[in-house]
Amino acid sequence: SSTVVPTSLPPYFIKGSIIQLADGELKRVEDLKTEDFIQSAEISSDLKIDSSTVERIEGSISASNFAVVQFSVGEHRAQVSVEVLVEYPFFVFGQGWSSCCPDRTTQLLELPCTKLSVGDVCISLTLKNLR
C-alpha cells in the first residue's frame, strides 16, 4: 500500500515553530523529544504511536527532489511506502529529526537534522480502536 504525505514542505518544520502538545504545553519544533510524542499520544483519544522501521530508501522516478521511503509499520510489520521531498523530516525514536537529505533540511528549515537510514525507527501514528 502507499501513503502520500504532504508534498510541499509544511510550515511547522521551520525552526522556531510553536507546537502544542496534547496536554497544552507549547514547545519549539526543534526542542521536541521522543517522550513528548509518546505522552501526547497517551492522552489522545483517537491516535496511537506506532514504530515504523525504515526498510528501504530510494530516489523517486518522478522527480529528483523526491524520495520513496518504505516502512515496516507496527507489530504486524505492514509495508507502507511514502513519497516525500528529500528534505522532509521524520522523527526517529531516541534520536530526533532525520531526513533523506539533512543538509537540505538544515538549509531550508534551519531544523537540526540527521541522516535518515535503513533500520531507523520512526514515530508514526495510527488510529486507536480500529476494530
Binding site: V5, I18, I19, V82, S124, L125
Partner: peptide, 19 residues
C-alpha cells in the same frame, strides 16, 4: 504566531493487514 498541533508533525501511516 501560529500554533500547530503535535500530531501534524507525525506522518499518519495506517498499517494494512496483508492476510
Amino acid at each position: 504566531v501560529p500554533v500547530f498541533p503535535w500530531h501534524s508533525l507525525v506522518p499518519f501511516l495506517a498499517p494494512t493487514q496483508s492476510d
